[in-house]
């Protein structure tokens, strides 16, 4: 049986999106007609989709090797060690409700395509 979709609250826009089992937060956001920063469109390459986990850490899906590698590289670019609060939206799955912060995540204007954003404009 399929569980009910989890609710992911996206701040600061204050939007709730439903994320199905196995679905990435990024895919759910596009499906829910949000603009979410990206230039690689979900290939775990550009890091523009990176988000900050605010609440619900216990409901985060596993960190797989591709995402771990990209996050490590992103952190080192910023002169830091990786933080458990930082995840790629295009690889993050959830098993329950979570609150995340992502500047630049906005409802699409009616009829608009998802739009690419400046890769350096990070969460």
């Amino acid at each position: 049986m399929t569980r009910r979709p989890a609710r992911v609250r996206v701040e600061p826009a204050g939007i709730d999106i439903a994320v199905a089992a196995g679905e990435s937060v990024f895919a759910a956001a596009l499906r829910s007609d949000l603009t979410w920063p990206t230039i690689c469109y979900g290939q775990a390459r550009c890091t523009a989709c990176v988000l900050r986990v605010v609440d619900g850490h216990q409901n985060l899906g596993p960190l797989e090797s591709v995402e771990r590698g990209v996050l490590r590289q992103l952190a080192s670019r910023r002169g830091r060690r990786p933080s458990r609060d930082t995840r790629l939206a295009c690889r993050l799955t959830v098993t329950g409700d979570v609150t995340v912060e992502k500047k630049g995540a906005q409802p699409n204007p009616p009829g608009a395509r998802p739009r690419a954003e400046d890769p350096e404009r990070l969460a």
Partner: peptide, 15 residues
């Protein structure tokens, strides 16, 4: 194999 999200196939080289 994988998924092209947002209906976009993106070249990793020059975008």
């Amino acid at each position: 194999s994988g998924t092209f999200h947002g209906g976009q196939i993106v070249c990793p080289y020059h975008g």
